[in-house]
Computed example of a mutant assay.
Amino acid sequence: MRIQDADEAHLGGIAAIYNDAVLHSTAIWNERTVDAADRAIWLADRTAAGFPVLVALDEHDVVGYASYGPWRAFDGFRHTVEHSVYVRGDQRGKGVGRALMKALIGRARTSGVHVMVAAVERGNVGSIRLHEQFGFTHAGVVEQVGAKFGRWLDLAFLQLVLDDRAAPPAAVSDIR
């Protein structure tokens, strides 16, 4: 398995993993599937904003992907990102998520990100445990803020402080 930046050749695999999560899990709180054209727009938007989109590849296929983007759209949050990691169903438990997390955290650190936030459905114990293994701490739960499959969903927040800066840079700047 190798981790690299995503490009147009990976869009079908990314869309397939995304759609599987939409249809069969509460990892993504959307109810509509996407196609490669939709993911092309998403990839272009992410990269234009300076955010990474990483893919995990086996010999032939995309087996997972990860990205981060703005946590909130206000200047004061510019040093914080929210990330996502998704692994193809038949590859879960094989280290793909761990490899993507490691690469994504490394990318965030070298890009000057101060805090990485995870928003995880409270019942997704596997994802929560993975985050804990990387040093994420629990930051709270907001109950019944989502709905899918005919039930309310609770959202757990976890965070990882990536550096030990005592204070942020004084000027508003693009840290990505």
Rank of each mutant, 00 (worst) to 15 (best):
E31H: 09
A6D: 13
D35T: 01
K102C: 12
D20Y: 15
L153A: 10
I3S: 03
V172L: 15
L54I: 03
T80M: 04
Q144W: 01
D45A: 13
H131I: 00
V117R: 08
N30P: 02
L57T: 00
V161C: 14
R165K: 14
P168L: 13
A119T: 09
R129M: 08
V81K: 02
V81N: 03
W42R: 12
S111C: 05
I41M: 10
T110G: 09
L158W: 01
G95N: 07
Q144Y: 03
I14P: 04
T110V: 11
P169M: 11
R78A: 15
D58N: 13
S127I: 01
D38S: 12
N19I: 05
G13W: 02
M1Q: 05
Q159F: 12
A37F: 00
H114L: 04
N19L: 08
H60S: 11
V53P: 04
V53N: 02
R88V: 01
T33V: 10
V87C: 10
L43G: 01
D7F: 05
K148E: 04
S127P: 07
F74P: 00
E31T: 10
D38I: 01
D38K: 06
E121I: 00
S67Y: 04
L100S: 07
I105H: 02
A166K: 15
H24D: 07
V22G: 08
A166D: 13
D38L: 01
A48Y: 07
F149R: 11
Q91S: 15
A37D: 13
D61E: 12
V145C: 13
R2L: 11
D154K: 08
R176E: 10
H114Y: 06
V62A: 01
F74N: 07
R72H: 15
A170R: 14
L153W: 09
V22P: 08
R122F: 06
M101S: 15
A6Q: 04
N19V: 03
R165F: 03
E59L: 09
L130R: 00
F134R: 13
L162Y: 02
W71R: 08
A103F: 03
T80E: 11
R122N: 12
R109N: 06
H24W: 12
